[in-house]
Design a protein around this nucleic acid. Structure first.
Length: 235
DNA sequence: CGCATTTGACCAGCGC
DNA sequence: GCGCTGGTCAAATGCG
């Protein structure tokens, strides 16, 4: 655990997160090369990232600042990446800089049209039936903004980010021995999804991908505590 | 018994 | 057109 994980490793694995949505999506790599943090700060950061808006983080540098300032963190120094932190470490973050699918069709247009044509409102699209899926055939797919976390964890797969998630699927991805899990926010009217998978090359690495933005505050009571506590971290 | 998870089936998109 | 792959659905199953 004391090994410093550098940028090169993530670059090598870059095809993992960029495969989302069938097409590579441009990402700004936000890396904290020697950042180590404990579970509480990780929780706070993941929560912040999953609820970020494009308005609050329009660029890589802004996002970095937003993350760090929101968690009341300053860029840590190498010395804090020590085995004593153990458990989970926040390593790096990917953010999609553009939404290629949205560019193709227009997010709101597609959503509105598909809802009107299928006769369902947005709230019911998550439970779309096969017939409805057929009706949606030919519509351009839309992807919400995505954030990818890469963490090091030997025990936990799912980060506790303060939101409640319901697992709706699991899939074995080609050339990997570990299944990819699909989660959906349980909050009504919230269409945020996340996926969790382990790197085939290094099962200790967990890739957590958030898609979309929460339209509500975290429902987990623990989050407030962790965020409060994050203000007292000694970096 | 109710809710969450599992898992096989189905579908869309992509490459050849 | 066809096969492959990832994403999602929904019935079955598990669990508290």
């Amino acid at each position: 655990m004391s090994q410093i994980i550098n940028n090169n490793l993530f670059e090598e694995q870059n095809q993992i997160p960029t495969q989302m949505g069938f097409i590579p999506f441009p990402t700004n790599l936000i890396t904290f090369p020697s950042l180590g943090c404990n579970n509480q700060s990780l929780k706070a950061l993941s929560s912040i990232a999953s609820s970020l808006t494009s308005e609050s983080a329009d660029s890589t540098s802004n996002l970095t600042q937003t993350l760090l300032s929101s968690a009341n963190l300053q860029k840590p120094s190498r010395e804090y990446l020590t085995p004593s932190f153990g458990g989970t470490q926040f390593l790096s973050l990917h953010r999609s800089s553009v939404n290629p699918w949205a560019i193709l069709g227009g997010v709101s247009d597609c959503l509105n049209d598909s809802s009107k044509r299928s006769g369902v409102d947005h709230d019911h699209k998550l439970g779309v039936s096969s017939m409805k899926m057929k009706k949606m055939k030919g519509r351009k797919k839309v992807r919400e903004p995505r954030f990818c976390f890469k963490t090091l964890s030997t025990d936990l797969d799912v980060l506790d980010d303060g939101y409640k998630w319901r697992k709706y699927g699991q899939k074995v991805v080609k050339n990997t021995q570990h299944p990819r899990s699909y989660y959906r926010c349980t909050q009504e009217n919230c269409r945020v999804k996340k996926r969790v998978e382990r790197l085939a090359e290094d099962p200790r690495m967990v890739i957590t991908t958030y898609e979309g933005r929460h339209a509500h505050t975290p429902s987990n009571d623990d989050l407030h505590d962790s965020q409060t506590q994050s203000h007292h971290f000694l970096w």
